[in-house]
Amino acid sequence: MSTARTITKYKFAGFGGQGVLFIGKVLAQAGMLAKQQVTWIPAYGPEMRGGTANCSVIISSKKIGSPTVGKPNVAIVMNEASYLKFIDTVVPGGTLYVNSSLIPELPGRVDIRIVRVPVNEIAHEMGDEKVANIVMLGVMQAMIPAVPDDILEKVLLQLAGKKPALAEQNMRALKAGKEYAMNL
């Protein structure tokens, strides 16, 4: 991590059950362990059901003022509704990670980088569609590392708690995401 003042704002969005709040939490926790300032805010209540579950994460080298993320530097959209809702909010020069398994080719933007990854297929090939979110986290980490790799992996292991099988699955998914990104 550079010592210069950096602040990155993330939006993680999908439908309930896709684990977008979870990967946001992983990133925030890892950011904290990497001695950065962090905030994590879920969109809560009825928003959590149906359409778009989402959370906002900020990782910053200095005290975080506004914890809200109206204009993310990085957005992860796991379903079509989230794509439509957030594509226009990404700051110019930012990155949008798109779950191409569920989101068709839609009008995009030229001033941001759009990374399409079929995370559901990748997860499915691994034998567990539920880790599609972790695959996307791996892609993101490979392209623009938010925190050191070892810290991210440590947090991922920690948050799996007492389920070794789950922890192992998560690690494999993270790796699969990274590998996919290398070949982009």
Binding site: V38, T39, W40, I41, P42, Y44, P67
Partner: peptide, 10 residues
Amino acid sequence: DGILGQMMEP
């Protein structure tokens, strides 16, 4: 407010 209630921070 709801944000502070729901927000995670260190």
